[in-house]
Amino acid sequence: MTQAPDLPLWAALLVAFLVLFGASVSLIGTVGLLRLKTFYERMHAPTLGTTVGMASILLASMICFSALQSRIVIHEILIELFVTLTTPVTLMLLSRAALYRDRSEGRERRDKP
């Protein structure tokens, strides 16, 4: 029923741990999308998945393919690099849009003390 690549034991242990860990961190981040109360708080949640969650799953992929093809496979770094560089851009644009919309509706949600 389940399918798995044919890896040596050390690689299999590492890959299994990293995949599970990354998926859990990513799930926790997305659960935060549901649990946190205001929009600005919710914006923090998905960054868990784009930092540690993604890094550990991509590391698992690197280890897996390096062991399978018995050479060093590192092109997953490009995905990591791309997402790390682009997440700030999307979040900045989104936060500016949200600030603008709140201000134009006269909803000063600036939860200041």
């Binding site: 923090h44 949640a45 960054t47 868990l48 790390t84 700030p88 900045m92």
Partner: peptide
């Protein structure tokens, strides 16, 4: 901006 956004818990707004 990348550093502030990449650390969850802080977010660059404007």
């Amino acid at each position: 901006g990348i550093i502030i956004t990449a650390t969850p818990g802080t977010l660059w707004m404007q």
